[in-house]
Design a binder for these strands. Sequence first.
DNA 1: TAGATTGTTAATCGATTAACAATC
DNA 2: TAGATTGTTAATCGATTAACAATC
Lengths: 207, 207
Amino acid sequence: MKEDISLSVIKRLPRYYRFLEMLKVNGIARISSKELAERMGLTASQIRHDFNCFGGFGQQGYGYNVEVLYKEIGDILGLNDGDTMIIVGAGNLGRALASHDTFEKRGFKLVGLFDSDEKIIGTEINGIKVQGADNLEKFVRSNRVDIAILTVPKAAVQPTAELLAAAGVKGLMNFAYTELDLPEDIAVSNVHLSDPLMYLSYRIKNK
Amino acid sequence: MKEDISLSVIKRLPRYYRFLEMLKVNGIARISSKELAERMGLTASQIRHDFNCFGGFGQQGYGYNVEVLYKEIGDILGLNDGDTMIIVGAGNLGRALASHDTFEKRGFKLVGLFDSDEKIIGTEINGIKVQGADNLEKFVRSNRVDIAILTVPKAAVQPTAELLAAAGVKGLMNFAYTELDLPEDIAVSNVHLSDPLMYLSYRIKNK
DNA sequence: TAGATTGTTAATCGATTAACAATC
DNA sequence: TAGATTGTTAATCGATTAACAATC
């Protein structure tokens, strides 16, 4: 595998993965870069270029085997590593995400739910009991949690993130409208749900 | 305003907007491109370049007035147009989004909630009653709904989107793992919640 | 073998950065 | 006026696309 895969390529991988899954479900065994390009609205050239960042998965004159390619991209993304995940903040959004079954389908295993509200602690969502925030650090350490989804109030985000980072979490998915300041070996994805809405607003105004 | 603002520039606008809001809240009245760049992790050059796509909001020797710039970017994004919004699909995620108060803060007014489940219809979330899916088309037409958030099951997405488009909705925020095929004057934002998780997984694997 | 389609290099295009004159 | 910082053009960098030889 080449060093220094560009961010643009990496960001396209999940979308490739979804399309290949769809093809697989529809029983399509092989596909050429040309046809995949048409379906995805990309160029065949870009697709071949992208895949070749990770090595040649295709075969001249034939195209790509859907099953193989799907598996390969999953491996590249690390979806077969059995990453464990917790959700910190069991409010409306946290609870909705806990019931979101796509995460598990993609190989992320939800192992814990945390909140600091006494009324929520002890309730069960999707078979998992909500624990108090005071258990958080110990739980993360002893269970070697890989990823934490942060759905806590804005003010709690930075301290919670620091605690999680110190306890050994490797990646954070942050839903609050703050950008985190953390050691750079912690991977962070900020999900700002208003952003796509603002983008729509712009498009509506300027069409 | 220039024609053809590039997508890269537009996609940065919501983030500028959030940072300016933060500065405003913190009582900062003016800022130079240099300082904003440091805070945001961009280059000063890019910031000035971006803002100048829409006209000069700054003043030589002084910088940018935070309040003015904030207002301007809000206007560019169309956040002051009073866009109305409905949520179609009042499951876990739909209900969580209905209670998400940032949307309203950004100028999006939630006016309706819809579902097809008899058990959910009639319940109230955030002061809004869930209506049956059979009211959807009529409601959209008579209330001139601008934006619809789609949190319906995968199989229902495409037909629902078509119905909404025909009824005059201008923008769709789609949370299902399908990409929509619609007339191109309808703006669409696909929100794939697993994508940031897959990205984290990649980063964790390849750090 | 002939046809198809990849892998890969080179050409193009667009986005970011640097530089500096304009000007507050 | 002097200093600071924008607005804007030109230079650079990176990403996408085109082209074609390699090969299944």
